[in-house]
Structures are given as C-alpha cells and as structure tokens.
Design a protein around this nucleic acid. Structure first.
Lengths: 338, 338
DNA sequence: ATCGGCAGCTAAACCGGTTTAGTAATGGAA
DNA sequence: TTCCATTACTAAACCGGTTTAGCTGCCGAT
C-alpha cells in the first residue's frame, strides 16, 4: 500500500480532493478529468485505504461473529460453516468483511465482544445461540454495538431478529412418529439454557399433548455425542423405555443410534430415531438418519443483510421470518414394535 | 466511541501526546502524571481507536483466512473449526483478530484475497489447502501480503511453512492393515490437486511397495461423501476387489462404509476401512471408524504464531514441524478374510 | 555566574483519506 | 455592461491517534 491518494493526485495533475470526488462518483469534477483520474488510479494500482476512510466515517467495514462453543463439538456441527458461508454471500456484495472469534474458555465470550467493540473493530455483530437470560444483549447495549439476533430472545431486546422457527420441524417429526404408531416418544434435548433448546422441547411437548400422549420422556443433554449417549442410556434403562427418540441434533442422534445398536437394539425395528440439522454424514449412517433440514446458508445471508441495512439506517425495525426447517424422512424411523 | 484521546487529555489536564505516551508505557511522562492520565482514561472508558492507530502504523491488527470450499462439505469437515479455534488461542493474547472469508464460487478465491489486501484489511494471511501449482503464492507476492502456508508447497515459496506430515499416519494405517493380513489394500484419495491429497497417496504407495505389495488400487475422489461412494463402488466392482480401503478423510470413509454395508458386505469382516481426521462422529459409526487423528487446533495456533512473529520481524525464516498425526484403531479394521 | 544536559511536558506534523469553504472561470439574464 | 449562478476545481480542516521537534525549569559541572 505504498501508493496513496496523493500519488494519484499528482499523477493526474489534480488535488487530493478531486481524486476523492472522482473515485466516489461525486459531482464536482468534470467528466474528462474524472476519466483521467480513474486511469491514473488504475495505472498506479491504487485502492483507497480503509483505515483512512474509516477514520473519517467512523466505520470499520466489518461485521463480527463470536462463536462460544467447544471446538471439538464445533467440528461436527454443520450449522456454522454453512451459516458463515451465508453471511459471506451477502458481504461479498458489500464492502464488508467478517471478523470471526471463537470463544472457548468461560469468560472469553464477553472479552471477545469487548475486543470487537473497543477499538472499533466491527460495526455490528450477529448473535447466535441466544440463551434464556442472555447477558449479551445488555452488554452490547452498553458497548453501543449494533446487533442482530438469531430468533427473538425471550427477554426484551432492541435488536432486530432474523427468525427460523424450529417448532414446525419437531412437530412434523413427532407427528411422523405418531403416524407410525409410536406411543412412547422421548426427547433428548440440548441445553435448556439456549432458546432453541427450549423451543424444540416445547414443540415436542405440544405435539404429544395434542395427540393425547404423555410428554414425560425428556432428558436434557448438551448437544455433544457423549451427552447423547448418556441420555440415551438413561432412557433405555427405564422400565417403560421409549420406542422412538427425537434428538435435538444429529450428533446426539448419531451417538444415540450407535449406542442403541451396540446394546443389540434394531433401528428402527426396536427404536426409531430422528435428528436435527441434516448434517452431511447423517444420510450415510446405518440406517440413514431421519432428520430435520434447516437452511443455515439462507439464515446467514439474511442475518447479514438485516444487520447491514440496520447500519445504514434503512432497516424498518421489523423481524424477518424465514421459511421453517423441513422433516427429511429416512430409514432410521419405522413402524412401532407391537 | 464518542470519547477520544483529546477528551482524556483535557480531563487529565495534559496534552494528547502525553496521553499517548502514558498509555503505551513510553518514557517522557512522570510517574505521577502517568497515573493521573490512566485514571482519567479508565474513568471515561476510553480505548484507543485501532483505525487511528493503524493509520499511523500502517497496520490493521488482523489476520486473514480464506476458505475455498463447498459450504456443504465444510459442514462435515472437522478440520476448519478446530483450526480456527487454534488460531484464536494465539490471537487472544495478541491484539489481533481474524478476518474469515468463505469463497465458494470459482474465481471468488482470488477476489477474496484481493479484498483482504486492497484496503489493507489484514496484515497477513494463512494459506490452507495448498495446491500443486498454487497460483495464490504468486498472487500474494504481487499483493505484497505476508503469509504462512500449511505444509511446504512443492513450488518455490517465500513464505514460512508450518508443517504437519500426513505421511506417518497413512503409513501406520497401511502397516496396521498389512499386519492384519491384508494383501489388497486400496486408497481412495482426495483431489490430487491438493498437496495433502498427493502426499497421502504417496505414503500409501510407499508403504505398500515397501511391503512388496502392489499399489494399483487407487481411485481419485474429491473428499465428498458422494465422491467416496462412487469411488468405493468402482473398487468393489473390480474382479479383484480390495479387502481394505484407506480413505483420505472420514467423510468419504463414512460414506464408503455405509455403501459397502448396503451392498451386504460386513465391515470389517469382508472389508476393512480407515479414515482420516478423527471427526467427532467417526467413533459413533457402526462399526466405529479406525482413523488418523491430526491436531488442527495446535496447527492453527502455530500458524498464527509464526505469522505474527513474521509480521513483527522476529521470525527466523525456518519452517516449523509439528508432531505428526496418529493412527487411532477402532472396529472398522480387522483381520483379512482368508 | 554560566553553561550543558536531562526530565517532563506541549505544539505541531503526520498517517491517508473525506469534506467543507473558498476561488476562478464561464455563461446567461437583466 | 453588470451582476449573479453555476461549474470545476483547490486549499485546508478534519478524523484520532503517534511521533518528532522544541520549550521550560532544574540540576550539577566548570
């Protein structure tokens, strides 16, 4: 970046101001001069420094994303890569980049948001994995950092939300199982600290209640494979074990299915299983996993778009509602044993 | 960021320069004054603007990572999340952040690097998935963007490399299979455009040759699940099908294993299978997958460290060699059928 | 008594852009 | 012919830091 606006200015025989006007398509320079300036800029290979531009405009031209997850778990989560790719499809068309932070240690999350806010590293952040009583929304207000949340928090939040309702998918899964004759349908949920952990549980409960079945087979797990195994073991040890289990994600479902098979159970003969996420590997299991396919790419794209429009003041303040995830029926679900 | 250095200066009754000196621990201010300034800064909640600081120092305090992969595939790849988490563990201790770009469309990759270089958005980049005749290393030299590569490119490269040799792991896998009595050991490789696709193939070849076996059962695939299925089908259709297949990653191994089982083959009774990556789901397959465990977290940490030391001029120019990946034996490999 | 040197601080230049105020030239209307 | 408006441009201020040059007051050495 040795070449600056002054170099271009003197090369074109004009002042710095004229170069700036020409570059940004502002009126104030003649068409002929504008062309001469643009050619000089091209010849010198000049691109304006974002730092200098941002200094004047108080913008950083970057969005932030903080992921607070165990890296080991993250590696099997199909959500974030696709979500991030979605963000990128939006940013590719806007002079913005994404600053990503992975916060593993406890307390690292808040530090991460502060780090992004402090020097003005980002102009806004996208909040994923919203929790029940999420301290981040207060924090971000303190830091005066604009944000978008994935789904609407249960607490009051000044930030627009981009929503994808997971209720429908879980409802469809439960109804699918009921249609197959299952009466004892369990749910192994993710952490209930997350609002998506809760909403999936509530959807499962509601669907069972609506069908006149009891919603008593719930175990809270943590979205990890070992957690899924432990929860599955706990359910299968009951006197009245379930004939079907609705898992809150594919990783737990995979681990649970494997565990049940190792116990000598046939899937789906003895136990039907559903997941959530439609991970790439899910269709290559034995049997292939019935699961719920969200569209994280679209979610990321929409979230970035809303945040950007929020930043330039063109957002109308309303939440966005995206098309809900769909049930994908494969071979891990079958008729209930009679 | 309404509060600036001038506010702090007037609050402490000193000049801007004194505040700067005090903040950065430079000599030139008395101890008493320094304390007064720091207190004023704390009271006002002032943190210096990175933009302004960077304008003077010509630094952005950010590193870049461009991932050129299909998002769908990315979602099942355990490498990048852990690798990124590793980068973060280093950056957390150094006033740097990570700018991530996912380039999906062809041609988007070069645009991504240009976008990072142009406005001076990052001070350096980490190059992953190095290819055989990688155009990026020339590009980065043109852009004058410092870099670190993962493993040493086959072509001349001015950038330091952080290496993790995948040879040992593959060799160990092949020797493990030979020890189990296998004679016909195939390899389903990733794209040979990648140097890690090539090195894995060469390691497989070398191990077989060393044992006096023929290395004729190779199929090039693309690291994807459908690709793994197609390659597996091709191998199993041969007149002399393999009794063991060494896959270049877990996703292809998973898909291949599932395909073989659907064909009625017993794993490992009829066919032994090994993967690469040690994805979280790999141990929850049926049977659990024998695979090769790398340490992407450590790799990311080391890569970021080398790049940072390169940026501040303290790097000695030598490549770093990390501990090689290890074979993890599980139940997808067993004695050869006789 | 005078001078040199140093500690402690301020003023101002500087980084590379954007933006505002101001100037010169041109054209049209009165 | 005079005056005003408009166009095309320049000079300079500005963003918020860092850094250099310079100033002041005090000390010890000559």
């Amino acid at each position: 970046m040795a070449v600056t606006i002054s170099d271009v200015a003197s090369a074109a025989g004009v002042s710095k101001g004229a170069v700036s006007l020409a570059l940004n398509g502002q009126p104030g320079v003649g068409e002929e001069t504008r062309q001469r300036i643009l050619e000089a800029a091209k010849a010198l290979g000049w691109t304006p420094s974002l730092r200098a531009r941002g200094l004047k405009s108080s913008k950083s031209y970057a969005l932030g994303l903080v992921i607070a997850r165990n890296p080991k778990l993250l590696g099997s989560d199909p959500f974030f890569p696709a979500f991030i790719a979605g963000i990128e499809t939006t940013l590719a068309e806007h002079e913005y980049t994404l600053v990503l932070t992975v916060a593993t240690a406890p307390g690292a999350e808040e530090r991460a948001y502060r780090k992004l806010a402090d020097g003005g590293r980002v102009d806004g952040v996208i909040l994923t994995d919203v929790r029940h009583d999420d301290s981040r929304i207060g924090l971000l207000q303190d830091l005066k950092l604009p944000a978008v949340t994935l789904n609407r928090p249960e607490m009051p939040s000044p930030f627009p939300a981009v929503c994808m309702d997971d209720t429908d998918g879980i409802t469809a899964a439960v109804e699918h199982l009921i249609g197959l004759g299952h009466k004892r349908i369990a749910h192994i949920g993710g952490s209930q600290a997350y609002i998506h952990g809760r909403s999936r549980r509530h959807a499962w409960e509601a669907a069972l209640t609506k069908a006149g079945l009891q919603a008593d087979l719930f175990v809270e797990a943590d979205f990890t494979a070992p957690g899924g195994v432990a929860a599955t073991e706990q359910l299968l040890a009951r006197q009245d074990p379930p004939t079907a289990i609705v898992y809150a994600n594919d990783l737990m479902a995979t681990a649970g299915q494997s565990f049940a098979q190792a116990r000598g159970l046939n899937v789906p003969g003895d136990l039907s299983i559903t997941g959530y996420d439609n991970a790439e590997f899910a269709q290559y299991l034995n049997p292939p996993l019935t699961t719920i396919a969200a569209d994280p790419l679209r979610w990321g794209r929409a979230a970035a778009l809303v945040l950007l429009s929020q930043l330039d003041g063109t957002h109308n303040g309303e939440d966005i509602e995206l098309a809900p995830p769909q049930l994908v029926v494969r071979a891990s679900t079958g008729p209930a044993r009679t």
